[in-house]
């Protein structure tokens, strides 16, 4: 197992770990990854990955128009809104 680059992993997960906690998470991750490493010894060369455990045919509903949420419903939990939009700081200069 290679070393865990905790800065890179937290960047991928959009988390900004406080510097005093980086070591805590880094060590914790190392322990857990080491613990799950036993899977590497299982021969799976002829095995397909399992995605949906019951492997039942996914049922497709008829394509019918139905009433769903209104704009106000959708925006009702928005931390900040402006008219019919979610509001965030300016993204494009």
């Amino acid at each position: 197992m290679s070393d865990i680059d905790i800065k890179r992993i937290s960047y991928l997960a959009k988390l900004k770990l406080p510097s005093e906690k980086e070591e805590f998470y880094s060590n914790s991750l190392k322990d857990i990854i080491k613990w799950v490493d036993n899977l590497k010894k299982v021969d799976t060369s002829k095995i397909e990955p399992l995605h949906n455990v019951t492997e039942k045919t996914v049922s497709i509903r008829n394509d019918e128009v139905s009433k769903s949420n209104s704009v106000d419903d959708v925006l009702s939990n928005a931390p900040e809104r402006a008219q019919n939009f979610f509001k965030v700081p300016k993204v494009v200069e």
Partner: peptide
């Protein structure tokens, strides 16, 4: 963090895909 690690480039096949096979 565990999830991001096992799904990240270079580790996906060794961990995530292998786990789906197991």
């Amino acid at each position: 963090l565990i999830g991001a690690y096992v799904l990240s480039a270079g580790y996906y096949d060794a961990y995530y895909r292998q786990a789906q096979k197991v």
